[in-house]
Amino acid sequence: MTFERWDVLTALFPFVESTRRKPRPVLVLSGSDFNDAHDHIITAMITTAAAGRWASDHSVTDLAAAGLLRPCVVRWKIFSLPKGTVARKIGTMGSSDRNALSSALDDVMKNPAATTQTH
């Protein structure tokens, strides 16, 4: 299966204390050429931020387009995942979220110190 930048997927994450895995939403940041060539996807965390917010969190404004059922934020915890951990595609970020996230990601990569964590 091919995934595109801005797709929202559920990926199976392991629990530390058991062998179970739980689906969690992630945002695809890499393009389909990279994803297919490497069999990995570069992603960012999507969370409800129930345990606290970071100053750089982006609140998703178009939950329906993203396939999210409750208010969530994109958090700049960036990681690669093997394509085999992806459960399914649930949506795609809406255009206003894509524009804001693209600008925010540029800021993070240019000046990481400006996006410090807050609790």
Rank of each mutant, 00 (worst) to 15 (best):
F79Y: 13
M109A: 06
G31I: 04
T43R: 01
E4M: 08
L29E: 03
F13G: 01
H40F: 14
M1Y: 05
F34N: 03
F34V: 08
S80T: 08
V26W: 00
A55H: 10
P23C: 04
P25G: 08
G31F: 08
N111K: 14
L12T: 03
F15H: 15
I41F: 00
D107W: 05
A65E: 06
A104P: 02
A113M: 15
L101V: 06
G91S: 09
R75M: 11
D97R: 06
A100N: 14
D106A: 11
A51F: 13
N99S: 14
V86G: 01
D106H: 08
T85N: 05
S96T: 14
D36K: 13
R20V: 07
V74M: 01
T61D: 08
D57P: 05
P23E: 03
D106Q: 10
V86I: 15
T43W: 03
M93Q: 06
I42R: 04
H58A: 02
S80P: 01
L12C: 10
G91E: 09
N35K: 01
W6D: 14
L29R: 02
G52I: 10
K77T: 14
T2M: 10
D107C: 10
M93Y: 07
G67S: 04
F34A: 03
V73M: 03
A64M: 01
P14R: 15
T118F: 06
A44G: 03
M109D: 04
V26Q: 01
M109L: 14
V28N: 01
V16D: 13
W6Q: 06
L27N: 08
G31S: 11
R21A: 13
G52C: 10
V26L: 12
R21P: 02
A114I: 05
A114W: 02
A66H: 01
D36A: 13
G67I: 00
N111C: 10
P23W: 05
E4R: 12
R70N: 03
I41P: 00
A51Y: 11
R24F: 06
T10I: 06
A44V: 03
D33H: 14
L68H: 02
F13H: 12
F79L: 09
L12W: 09
K83N: 11
C72V: 03
V8M: 05
T48F: 04
S80K: 05
T19A: 11
M93F: 14
A64T: 04
S80Q: 09
F79Q: 12
